[in-house]
Design a protein around this nucleic acid. Structure first.
Lengths: 109, 109
DNA sequence: TTGATGCATTCTTATATCGCTATAAAGCTA
DNA sequence: TAGCTTTATAGCGATATAAGAATGCATCAA
C-alpha cells in the first residue's frame, strides 16, 4: 500500500525544496569539491571563483537541505557530504543530459 | 577515463537547469498526473488547482527541459513523460526525505 | 463565416534569490 | 587584552520566476 498515492501540497513543497538545493551551479560546484573529501569553508572559497560570503550562504542552504554535514574544528568549519545519494542523483541527471545531447562530450559528475 | 573530471561552468549550468525543472511544486504535481498516463492540457488543469495559463507555462518548462513529450491531437495537446528516469529521481529524493524525517509518514512519488 | 473550444504567449506584480560589500561573532595567539 | 583569522550574517541592487489577467492563435462545428 501507499504505492500510488499522490503527494499533498506540503509534501510536494518538501520534494521541490530538496531539488532546489541542486538547482544552482555554485552549489553544484561546492558539492563537486566535497566529493573528493571534507573541506573547510576557506578551502572551498579558494577552489571556487566567488566570495566567502557567497560560499557560506550556499553552504547554509545545502546544510539546511540535509545535503552536507558540518563540524567545527577550532576556528574553522569543516563541511562534508551528508548523504551519498547526491552523487547518484547527479549521475542520473548527467546521463539524461548525455542521452539528450547529440554531442559526443560526456558529462560525469 | 573522464571519471573524476569536474564539470565546467557551462556544464554545471545545464545540470542545474535540469534540476530546476523539478524544483517547483506545480511542476511536480503535473508530473504526478502524467505518471498515470498521457493527459491533455485541460485534463491537467482540471486535476490541479491553478490556471490554464500557468499549466501551459509549466508544461513548456518541462518540455524545454526534455522531461515531458507532447503531440497535437486535433485541437488538443497531449503531454506525456519523456523519460522515466524522472520517477527514479523523485523516488530517491523522497527516500532521502523519509530517511531524514523522524516521522512515520512515508512520501512516495 | 461565425462562434466556441483548447492551448500558448504577453504583460504585470509580487516574491525569491544570487552575489557583492560591510560587519559581526567566535576562536586563536601573542 | 589586543589583534588576527575564519566563518556567518545583514543589507543592498540586480535578476529571475511564479501566477494572474488579458490576448492571440489554431482548430472544429454549425
Amino acid at each position: 500500500m501507499l504505492r500510488e498515492m499522490k503527494l499533498n501540497p506540503a509534501e510536494l513543497e518538501r520534494v521541490a525544496n530538496l531539488f532546489r538545493a541542486f538547482a544552482e551551479p555554485t552549489r553544484l560546484a561546492i558539492l563537486q569539491e566535497l566529493k573528493a573529501g571534507e573541506r573547510s569553508v576557506s578551502e572551498i572559497v579558494d577552489s571556487l571563483h566567488t566570495s566567502q560570503a557567497n560560499v557560506s550562504k550556499q553552504l547554509k542552504q545545502l546544510f539546511d537541505a540535509g545535503v552536507v554535514s558540518r563540524r567545527k574544528q577550532g576556528t574553522q568549519v569543516i563541511y562534508g557530504i551528508a548523504d551519498e545519494m547526491i552523487f547518484e542523483l547527479c549521475r542520473m541527471v548527467c546521463e539524461k543530459l548525455n542521452r539528450d545531447a547529440v554531442k559526443p562530450a560526456e558529462l560525469k559528475f
